[in-house]
Amino acid sequence: MINKNSPIPIYHQLEEYIKQLIDSGQLVPGDILPSEREYSDKYGISRMTIRQAIINLVNERYLYRVKGKGTFVMEKKFEQDLQGLTSFTEDMKARGMKASSKLIKFKIIPAHLKLAKSLDIQEHDPVYEIVRIRLAEEIPMALERTYISANLVQGLTEEIVQNSLYKYIEDTLHMKIASGTQIIEAAIANEQEVKYLDISDKSPIMLMERSSKLDDQTIFEVVKSSYRADRYKFMIDLKRF
């Protein structure tokens, strides 16, 4: 594993070895690594060299440290492609994972002026307000607040919104979801996000606001989501014009 005659620095060799263990599944999220002394005794290398390798892996977010407890394997982040409009359920299903929701709020409210403009409806028109915790393999990933015109999308129930809204809209109501616009920004978790996402106070999160349209360009939903920054990342391919 460690070749002291190699021109490759020893700390880098150790980094790559630990990465291989993680990528191959021999080390899984939550596993604790051997101590610096154990690595030193096993491979005959200095603790300073081991410390450098560990620091680099922490900075690359392969590992994380807990004071007084040790160094652990970091949970892998879920990557979402921003070029396609998919629901959370569809996104998790494509990864072979079980998606679920915990319903926090489901009610009809009168649209205030800002919300009415966002949905292109009249002020005081009825709007479904749906607040859900979105989970992947029972792990909280996002706190999602969805607003949908009740005159446009009719017949929603608590049972439907705990599964896939998009599936209901397309398969039951036979509406074609066509496009969406998303805005993403970084923020610090508020009290509600800390509570529902099971994260520490002042943890970083990613705020996403999406406006989605049907194929006739009718806006059918506005979604405001708070994603755990330690669990999720977004990806987009860029082309030079």
Score class of each variant (00 low, 15 high):
residue 172 T to C: 06
residue 83 Q to I: 02
residue 133 I to N: 07
residue 170 E to A: 11
residue 58 V to M: 13
residue 58 V to C: 09
residue 172 T to V: 15
residue 148 I to P: 04
residue 110 P to A: 03
residue 148 I to W: 01
residue 96 G to N: 05
residue 97 M to W: 06
residue 152 L to D: 12
residue 180 G to P: 12
residue 165 L to Q: 09
residue 169 I to L: 09
residue 67 K to Q: 11
residue 95 R to T: 00
residue 141 M to C: 09
residue 72 F to H: 02
residue 77 K to Y: 04
residue 52 Q to C: 06
residue 79 E to Y: 06
residue 90 E to L: 01
residue 160 I to F: 11
residue 173 L to K: 14
residue 109 I to D: 01
residue 105 K to S: 14
residue 168 Y to C: 05
residue 188 I to V: 14
residue 80 Q to M: 04
residue 82 L to D: 02
residue 83 Q to N: 12
residue 187 A to M: 06
residue 161 V to L: 08
residue 146 T to I: 12
residue 79 E to C: 03
residue 91 D to Q: 10
residue 163 N to V: 07
residue 160 I to R: 13
residue 195 K to F: 12
residue 182 Q to S: 15
residue 99 A to E: 03
residue 197 L to R: 10
residue 180 G to T: 14
residue 52 Q to K: 15
residue 116 A to Y: 04
residue 136 A to L: 04
residue 65 R to I: 11
residue 115 L to R: 09
residue 171 D to P: 07
residue 88 F to L: 02
residue 174 H to M: 13
residue 181 T to M: 12
residue 52 Q to L: 14
residue 190 N to V: 03
residue 182 Q to P: 01
residue 70 G to R: 12
residue 61 R to A: 11
residue 135 L to N: 11
residue 166 Y to T: 12
residue 55 I to K: 13
residue 136 A to N: 05
residue 87 S to D: 04
residue 111 A to K: 11
residue 131 V to T: 14
residue 192 Q to F: 08
residue 111 A to G: 00
residue 93 K to T: 09
residue 89 T to F: 05
residue 137 E to N: 14
residue 125 D to K: 11
